[in-house]
Design a protein around this nucleic acid. Structure first.
Lengths: 230, 230
DNA sequence: TTGGCCTTGATTGGCGCCAAAATTTTACAC
DNA sequence: GTGTAAAATTTTGGCGCCAATCAAGGCCAA
């Protein structure tokens, strides 16, 4: 099911932020786009619902999942735990193959066209997935992939417009520390990196739910007027 | 979908080891057992496939997932990482509510009927889930639940018959260390606990795949005979 | 008796139809 | 012009049917 072209297409569109949280995924529309049947689409949507990528409202349809503020925080907390533990294991069992793959990825990431925003987004996500791959644990790899997707959704919902997902030069620095075998340094750098990403979002407790327009306008300073007093 | 009675029933049956890996889950059979429609069952099975609980062979049906040896090892490695990190966070933010829930669970676990094997299995699994709950992170809780289920499947496939899942007295000891605020001690105890569970399984590299009868008989000492030489 | 082959039975997979529900549009009254 | 209400359209949800595929049993030959 994960190698289904429709699933891959939707997931790729999410990591590249072409599909934004809240977007409706109509069954007929998807069936036409991917030139497949409605039944196939329903299976795919069911799969994505099970993976917390889309939410399903009965009799209304499937929508790209929009995490809550609490959930966004949980995602980053989980990433800090899981990625530091994974990274620690990777550094402990670093072999030449792993070093090569890491170097090759960094080369691709630094060498690619900076103006291609979509390639950038996939490459920066792939860095974190690569770390999980190097740990050689399939279960952790699945978790990492899920966390990356949910992070994309969290960023897309709470980012301040225009800011990049990852600071462009964080990954090469982390990779250097890994290759140098500096475990403490690499772990600290990874933690700082994740903190930076999270801090760039509007996750303050006063941040309004994007759907709650009352809160949005209250935040700007518009107060409901008591018309009977005018 | 997770609160669906059919899903809950199947998951509960797995943690209680009433449903063993490899068991076929026929659509009509399940529809009759739960007195529901075949379509509902298919949705449920699709959900369980997405969660790696059952595998699906085209035109043959759905079967309870049977982890490989490598996958079983990965599950335990993932649990060591995730549960130690979670436990560390729990100990750091321990409040009276958490202490109470922990004590209450241990009371239930020590006070229940030891002869009720099925209650035992749910209670021992609930202990590990409770730790994840106390961390207050919904994402981690989901991961923990998935890992507990997959652990049940791993144990059911590789256990030596007759041995218990968890050593009966490990949980109260860990709980005491948590309540005492002994972080290092609790983490070490949890690691030992997980090691014990894993070591009780037949996961040695020479351990045969339960389906590979050639390897099984080779393991016992039966060597293929060259009949032309006789 | 054993091995391969074919037929039979049972189960899954997919497609079309129709009902149910929600959203949008339209009409109407104030 | 505005707000409400109702109808119409669109979309999802579910059920039944039939085709495709696989497992098992029986048959025949060696």
């Amino acid at each position: 099911m994960d190698d289904d072209p429709v699933v891959q297409g939707i997931l790729k569109a999410i990591t590249q932020k072409r599909l934004k949280p809240g977007t409706k995924l109509g069954e007929d529309a998807l069936a036409q786009v991917f030139s497949t049947t409605r039944i196939h689409i329903r299976q795919v949507l069911g799969h994505l619902v099970s993976r917390h990528i889309v939410t399903h409202y009965p009799n209304r349809g499937a929508f790209i999942y929009r995490p809550s503020v609490q959930e966004a925080r949980d995602i980053f907390a989980a990433r800090r735990m899981l990625e530091t533990a994974t990274l620690s294991a990777v550094i402990d069992n670093l072999d030449d193959d792993a070093r090569g793959r890491l170097r090759r990825h960094i080369a691709r990431e630094t060498g690619h066209d900076r103006n291609d925003r979509w390639a950038s987004l996939t490459l920066t996500a792939d860095f974190h997935v690569l770390i999980a791959e190097l740990a050689g644990n399939g279960v952790l790899l699945d978790f990492a992939k899920e966390l990356m997707l949910r992070t994309s959704l969290a960023i897309a919902t709470f980012e301040v417009p225009g800011s990049p997902d990852c600071s462009p030069d964080a990954h090469p620095g982390i990779a250097d520390l890994i290759l140098a075998g500096d475990k403490a340094g690499a772990l600290a750098a990874m933690n700082r990196h994740l903190d930076e990403i999270e801090l760039r979002l509007q996750l303050g407790s006063s941040a309004p739910d994007p759907d709650d327009i009352v809160a949005i306008f209250q935040d700007i300073g518009v107060v409901p007027v008591n018309r009977s007093a005018g």
